[in-house]
Structure formats: C-alpha cells, structure tokens
Design a protein around this nucleic acid. Sequence first.
DNA 1: CGGCCCGTTGACTTACATCAAGATGAGTGG
DNA 2: CCACTCATCTTGATGTAAGTCAACGGGCCG
Lengths: 242, 242
Amino acid sequence: MQKRIPLTPDSSRCSTCMLNNLCLPVGMSTIDISRFEEVVQERLRIPKGESLFEAGERADAIFGIRVGSLKTQLEDASGHVQVTGFLLPGEIAGLDGFLEGHQLSHAVALEDTEVCVARVDEIDRVAAHIPSLQQQLRRLTSTEMKRSHQLVVSLGVLRSEQRLAAFLVNMSQRLSILGYSSSEFILRMSREEIGNYLGLTLETVSRLFSRFARENLIRIHQREVKLLDLPALRDLAGTDCG
Amino acid sequence: MQKRIPLTPDSSRCSTCMLNNLCLPVGMSTIDISRFEEVVQERLRIPKGESLFEAGERADAIFGIRVGSLKTQLEDASGHVQVTGFLLPGEIAGLDGFLEGHQLSHAVALEDTEVCVARVDEIDRVAAHIPSLQQQLRRLTSTEMKRSHQLVVSLGVLRSEQRLAAFLVNMSQRLSILGYSSSEFILRMSREEIGNYLGLTLETVSRLFSRFARENLIRIHQREVKLLDLPALRDLAGTDCG
DNA sequence: CGGCCCGTTGACTTACATCAAGATGAGTGG
DNA sequence: CCACTCATCTTGATGTAAGTCAACGGGCCG
C-alpha cells in the first residue's frame, strides 16, 4: 500500500529541503548535509489510514516526515491500544525500533503522508565520517525519551483539563516551528485518538473542547481549532508542555 | 554525601562481578569485558535517601547498580513529582541523561546503595574498540524506552488493580533474575512511592494490597510481600508486565 | 518511654467513564 | 441535486472507580 519513490540525482534533497533545519540534519554543516544526503535513497508515500510500519517488523530504517502526519501506538497482549504520539513534518519516526532492530510500535498515517527513508546500515556507514550525525541521533533519541516521560507525567499527575490544554499548547508550539499559525490549526486526529493518547474517553475530550469554547479559551468546529487565549491554556496546563 | 571509592588494581572488577551477565557487560566476550573494565574507575556509595544525581546536572557518566536500589523521578514546574522507575542491582541509571549531556531525572537511593561509575568520555574512547559495547548501549537505551512505553500503557489503559498486579509481577520477575525468590521479597519503596509511580494515591495502593491479601493472591505485612498466586496476578495484569 | 513516620481503614466526594440519543458532515450512488 | 449511509462529534443522564479527608494503630529511633 506504501508507494516507493526512488530518488534520482535531480530529486530535491536534504540540502534543499525546507525542513533540513528541523529534521535529521539539524546542526550539520552544509558539507555534512551533502554527505548525509546519500543516506536517503528513497521516499515512501503512505495513504491516509495505512501503516508506515508495524510492531515487530524488522527495523532497518528511520523515517523523516516530509509532508503529512502520523500517529504511533502500542498494543498490549489483550488488544488494548495506547496512542503514544503524533508526529509532524520534520520529526523522525522509528527511532525506538532502530535502537533494537525491530519496531516497538505501530505507525499509521493520519493523512496522506510522505517520508524520507534513512537506512540504518547506511547511517552506520556514514556516521563514522560525520560526528554531528552520531550526536544528532543521540539528541533525537533523548528527545524521544523526554516526550515519553512527559506523557507519563501527564497521565500520572495531570487532570483531564490540564492534559488537554497541554496537548493543545504542545501542538501549537510544534506547528509554529513549522511556520504554521500557532493559534489556528487543524487537528488531523479524531477525538478518540486524542482521548486515547491522553488517557481519556472521546466523550470527555469532546466535552472539554466544548467547555474550553464556552470559556472563550478556544474556538472549535470539528477539527478546526483556534486558540483564543494561549496564556490561559498554558497556565491551565501548568507551564511546561513538552 | 556520596562517598567515592576509587578502584585499585586488586578491587573486584566487572570480570569477577556476579552481575556481569546482567549489567553493562551483557553479551560481551571475556576479552571485551576485561577491556571494558578500565572504563569503570570508581564506585559511589549513596546512603538511603540521598541523591545519585539530580535533574539538570551535567551527565558525564552512567551508573551500574552494584547493591541497593534507586527510584527515578521527574518534577514539573509546579513541583509535582512523578516517579518514573525503580532500579535494581545490575540495572543502569542515567541513560536518559547520558544521551543529551545533562540529567533529565532525579535519582534517589531507596536504601544504602553502591554504584559503579562509567564515565561517558571513557566509554566513547573505548567503544571504538568494542563493537559489542556500542550495541549494548543501544540495547539498554531501547530497554529504557520500552519501560517508559510500558508505563504509559499502564497509566493510560489499565485499572488500578491491574497496575498494581503488573507492578508486583514485574518486581518478581526482575528479582528472580537476580537470584532472589520470585515469590517473596521486600518492597524497598513506600506506598506513596508505589502510588505515585502507578498514578494512584497511597491509600488506594494500601487498600488494593489488603484486598489482594483478602483474595489470597498475596500475603503482605508492611513491606514484606509474598506472592501466593502468581498466575492469577499475571492474569489480572493482562499477561505482559514489561 | 514518647514522638514520628508509615500504613490501614472508613465515610464521603468527585472526576471521569459509561450508556444512550441525536446532530453534523463527508462520501456515494441514483 | 437530493437521498442514503456511515463516521464522527456533541450532549445529557447515570454509574463508579478512585481521590480526599480523617481517625487510628504499629514499628522504629532517639
């Protein structure tokens, strides 16, 4: 269902990609980026609803998101699903799996999505010559860890309204880094997916959105959100929003 | 408050340590272990209640636990604490910090504890010659990630009794690997710490312990636990206990 | 012995889940 | 273009798991 897109010499590459200051090449010199580029030999298109990878699969690559968005989720033995994150352009999918050779989670496209494929063996081969790449991989892994910790804190100590406020503020921050409006955006995931991610039911999420709207913190219509009072939301969330 | 113990040539080392098949040297050949040993130049003694490291500190080492146990916790801006894990002998503390140069969490000794110090620069220096070390670091990082994910699932989808059952089964598993009884052990942490870890209050934890005891799943007196019906606990937890 | 954590247990409250009944909107086919 | 279905979302009524508040008991340490 995924469509492979081999990269020809004249395809657009990392060095000309708008996202190269967010994605894997963060912090690399122009020269390092051009050396790194050869690691990325192809792209994949994943239609909405399809999987980029599933838990247990051999993990021989990590994926930089070019356009679109993904959710990652875990399933336990009894079939329960826990959404562990939403990934936006410039962010990297498959980091947890890459560390141990097979995927730990299941990544599904929330909309038609395109990712750049960086094969692990290529990375290892090239990393010897690009110290900043090793460093960047460590940094990304650490970020992933922090995200996971943040989620633990959110699920462990925050109340539902705080979790949802933190979620909105976090989305706003990440979207604004991508150059989108930090106050007005479209949620690519359903109420159910948000709820699952935050350890709430879809009804609770819906009710909270309605309440936030009533309190003039946001305006919301289906998946279009407008944050009317970001400071108040930030305050509600308890300042740090991962 | 920490007491440094420099290692002299005749100190006991990794190659003679009982834990070397659990700790950092897992999967290394005898030769690799003896090369790895030189990374560990000292140990630290941390008295009960004292910190091994605190969030924000420069992270220039990782720590293999020799004897004792630790808890790791995060504090958010508003001072809320979330316990993120308990570490037993043979397990490694400070992995998350090591990836990005400063500690993300706060590690506190639950009892008088002794750890082996592996400095990051030493590791990086030696890693070039010991491929199994690089691999082992990746594996440990991945394990850490899995643990965190497991906790997310636990907090997100399990009910209180399931969380506590999973906690007991998990402790039992880890202790039996260390050669202790898998059915009878002493909890080194308070009800409050368990509760915080599992996203519950100390009263709920206490009540659940009492209920488990009433249902003959366990016997418990203060911090001494005896698991009477491990299969039932496993079943209650939902099979996989990280 | 007395003080102090720590753990237990009970009575009460509440935040969130569950159950259930419409609305709203996107997609499809006549 | 309208009528249909199906997904998703909203809102209300009710239930319940777990939190809160409070009193008490048991170990442990000076």
